[in-house]
Amino acid sequence: MSTQWSNDRELVFLECYQAEPVLWQAQHEGHKNKNKTHDAWTRISAIMEIPVPDLKKKRDSLMSSYRTYRKKVKDSIHSGASTDEVYKPIWFAYETMDSFLGEGVACNKTINSEQSANN
């Protein structure tokens, strides 16, 4: 039986995920410690009553969507752009995810070729 995910349930999952920085914060001392990350997933699983593999699939799906919207926002920010011109996602989970992931999620670093050519 597959897990039924409503927007509200996904937001509860994101709150639980945010409360476990060992899972999403690369600088966290336990981020690469399999025991600590396993324990964090187990805690979320107990709260959500959803198996860890299902939670990880949902995380991957949410992260994929978040990265797509984050890239659209970054791409819409250019020199001289007014705040009205900056893309504002209406996806229900964007603000929640951006509040704790923000700059921590890379969207393929770009190189300013004009600056490189002039140096």
Rank of each mutant, 00 (worst) to 15 (best):
V105H: 06
G102R: 11
A93N: 00
E85C: 04
N118A: 15
Q25V: 04
R67S: 12
W24K: 03
Q4E: 15
I111T: 15
M63H: 10
K56R: 12
L23Q: 01
T110M: 10
A81Q: 07
N7I: 07
S79A: 13
Q4Y: 11
T3I: 13
Y69F: 09
Q115K: 10
A117C: 12
S82K: 13
S65E: 05
T37M: 06
T83G: 01
Y94H: 02
A81K: 03
N108G: 14
G30P: 07
W24G: 02
I47A: 14
G102Y: 05
H38Q: 14
E103T: 12
T3K: 08
C107N: 09
V105K: 05
M48T: 13
F100V: 02
S82R: 10
S6N: 05
S76I: 01
A46W: 02
S82Q: 09
T83V: 08
K109S: 14
H31G: 13
T42D: 10
S2I: 05
A19W: 03
M1E: 14
N33A: 14
N118R: 13
D98K: 01
G104F: 03
N118W: 06
P89R: 00
M97T: 04
V73C: 05
E49Y: 07
S61E: 01
Y69P: 00
H28N: 15
A106F: 03
Y66H: 09
S64C: 07
R70L: 05
H78K: 04
C107G: 12
L14V: 11
E85F: 00
K58F: 00
D84I: 06
H28G: 13
T3V: 15
I111V: 15
H31R: 13
S45C: 10
M97Y: 02
S113A: 12
G104C: 05
E85R: 01
S79Q: 10
K58T: 05
Q4N: 15
E114L: 10
